[in-house]
Design a protein around this nucleic acid. Sequence first.
DNA 1: GGTTGGAAACTTTTT
DNA 2: GTTTCCAACC
Length: 743
Amino acid sequence: MSSYDLLNPEQKEAVLHTEGPLLILAGAGSGKTRVLTHRVAYLIEQGTAPWNILAITFTNKAAGEMRERVDKLVGLGSDSIWVSTFHSTCVRILRRYIDRLGFDTSFSIYDTDDQKSVMKEVCKKLQIDTKVYRERMLLGAISHAKDELISPEQMRLDAGADWNQQKIAGVYAEYQAQLRKNNALDFDDLIMKTVELFRNCPDVLDYYQERFRYIMVDEYQDTNTAQFQLVSLLAAKYRNLCVVGDDDQSIYRFRGANIMNILNFEQVFPDAKVIKLEQNYRSTSNILNAANEVIHHNQGRKDKRLWTDNGTGVPVRFRQFQNAFEEAEHVVGNIVSHIQKEEAEYKDHAILYRTNAQSRLFEEKLIYANIPYKIIGGVNFYARKEIKDLLAYLKTVDNGRDEVAVRRIINVPKRGIGATTLSRVGEFAVANDMGFYEALLNAEEIPGIGRGASKVLPFTALIQTLRAKQEYAKVSELLETILEETGYRRELILEGTDESEARLENIDELMSKVKDYDENAENPSLSGFLEEVALVADIDNLEEESNHVVLMTLHSAKGLEFPYVYMVGMEDGLFPSYMSIVADNPQEEIEEERRLCYVGITRAKKELTLTAARQRMVRGEIQYNMVSRFVKEIPDEYLENKTENPGQRAKEAKEQRINQRKQAMLEARRSLRAKPIQSKMVAATKASHLDYGVGDRVKHIRFGEGTVLEITEGAKDYEVRVNFDTAGVKKLFASFAKLQKIY
DNA sequence: GGTTGGAAACTTTTT
DNA sequence: GTTTCCAACC
């Protein structure tokens, strides 16, 4: 028996169809990764050289998973198959050939933060009123143009007499000029410049066309025009292009994804073979039917209906609550009961929401319930201030032309270099046609800089030392030097606040990532490390092995699956979002939200719970929301709706309020009564109350094990100071931290 | 040049 | 409710 016998007929057909264009319409949970990996294995079995295969995904996580599975199937030679994301593929190509476009191959990659800094400069230079033209709006317009491969010149032409558009085109042109000056590319440039390279240099294109004779693209519905062009160019010679996607899971239109890429694939490649994978191996039929019904409300999609022989399962549950607190409590309570009944582990549960802001309440309840959790998204690790500062040092060492990086750190930690000095340096640099850092090196010659020069000197000396050191030192050694020589670490230790401790922890984490890179990378180098770091998304850090409840946005959840899924905040105005309801083209926008809902539902394997709150705090104001229209689109036969009739509901709510007041009163009395006793026999009460004392070893859910240093009595609670083995000294409230004594 | 406090903006989603 | 920005002060 060969391994292909485990595939269903459609999957098998997709695997065996290797020549010519192929579109695989793969519904959620239909085993597309399996098809892709087997397809790679089959190609190699048929005699294709591993280095002639390119598989492109969107996230590093997806790439890593595919790589792992391919390795298992193929074995020898599998490392010469390119399995990588759009962005890293492009970086790899550009690092080799971007000098053809007038950039240096050691270019920096700018993230959103860096882009903002550049845009600020641009607006200052062009005297743009940022009250009228918001930086965010300008960057958005530029990004959108790049997704569509529109150059500044083209934008200017397209603008015609539209003065507003003309202005934006001007900003775009200057922004590109700044990036070039800094020898930097932003995210969108990575794709666009690669296309430009291919168009301008036929020899380079030909090299890669020969190299990648078989190309596969995952999550094809999320590709934008630039990515489509890139893939088309690469595949133009051999035409062995296999794309896998699901138009119903297209949720990145706001980021420029062009759904037409998948809907029109057959028009662009008339000889394309189309295979539909409609058997779902993931969910119960109740969950799947609910998903089918919801997505059926969309127009303009390729018709398909997923089916499964997994059995009916339990109905989808819907619960509406008085407020977001009760909603969070219910979800967490539900998870706790699964754990207690030993039906499931923490990692079997995912809480999915529309906006990152919704995570906080769940986080609080989970801490309170002592449940380990992991939040994906929000602020990217590499976007944190201290991390960005340190990376800016490394970038300055790596790419001397990266002005954004230099400006970021020239006065961090404080060296007494202020705005006046900086603008003098800037003027000098422009006047002498040199880079900003170059000007700093010549600080003593800059007129009117006065004492400033003596402050700049130690900084440039450090950078020069690091540059020399870079030749032979590991990246971790460079970072260590930076931390020591600049006093960055010392400053944070001296500060001694909770915040500075958190920053120090993050720095330790960065250090361990650097060390990991030093040891495990094939050819470790400073540029290599910075590149890797620039292209990671938060989702890439989700490890299957660790046992956590996972919290994330519906967007981040695409491609994942969990036995128990909670979709929370199912309210009109939140999901679908208010923005989509009041948009110029609500139909289209709401269809995108509906696809997002479809993605969410189809993440669930065993049980799906939908929740909503009648009132919730949004931006400090109470909002009253109706139940999401998407919930109403699920027929009753698949839904267990335990929302009572209004009369009953009001009555229960009233009872609940009365109960809550009673509870509050009891609590107040208890604390009043407890107080005097505590103050009389402090030690005794503490021992019985906290069951640990000074000197005891305790365990905390997040910080691990540690020793109790001090217990102080606060107004409402005990404040415990603990020296944790790994996390350092922390002050915690006893009732919140739920410390456990270790015997 | 650095610190501080109050006002304003923000929140839809991110490689 | 939180973060970011800017002006007035030190």
